[in-house]
Amino acid sequence: MILVLSGEGPSDLGARRPSEAGWEFVPGPMAWIVDKLLGRPDKLDYSVLDGHASGYDWVYFLSETDLGALRYPRPRVFPRDQSSFGNQYFRAAADQLGKHAQAVAIERSDSVIAVFFRDSDGTNSAPKTLWESKFQSMKAGFELAGFRSGVPMVPRPKSEAWMLCGLLKSEDAVKDCNWLEDEPGNDASPKSLKGQLEKHLNCEPTSEVQAELVRTGKIDPALIDLKSFKEFCESLDQAYSNSAVPLS
């Protein structure tokens, strides 16, 4: 299985950093969540990220800049309505990512899942429908590309909500954490999710700290019961089914 990942930075899906071999991919917490969910016994039963670190070339990572530099053919069209903004960008970007993932699948003759990560929003003033429209735009973009194993990964309002929920549930500290999806995503807010995560961990929630929480199992993704996370899981399950993983 090959993963084609595109996120916003090191604290979500991860980042590339210079290494002796040129560049290496450093997985972020969201990449580990994808890996843990796909690595269950009823699915792959192995870790794509561990395999990649051992020398298998199983992860293709695209930064925002890499994604913007893709030039697969696409129709230039204007929207039919203008009820919300930003959707055309996410649709077009998912279309490009899907086409790139398809090209990787052909080149490598292997199953490919593409994950497109973006936070839902960072401000309270944003419309409540923003998460829905961003998620659906990404799905529409993968469909436009004809790629059936594309996964929108859109935490509401941002990935720290998923992390905090995973922590609280793993510690059996709360029954449900739906309220986290209505917390301010803006890091400057006194009630910011990043601040809450820092307070709970009693240390700065760096990318490395968060990635380790998921990698080592301190956060069990199976316990995260937020709506935006469930939608992501359903999409990942569907992508896995469509990817037709060989039995051996």
Binding site: G68, V77, F78, G86, Q88, Y89, A92
Partner: peptide
Amino acid sequence: KKLGILGPGEVYVD
């Protein structure tokens, strides 16, 4: 950020 993925006019309406 959107330019490239979208054309200049598409960025404007998006």
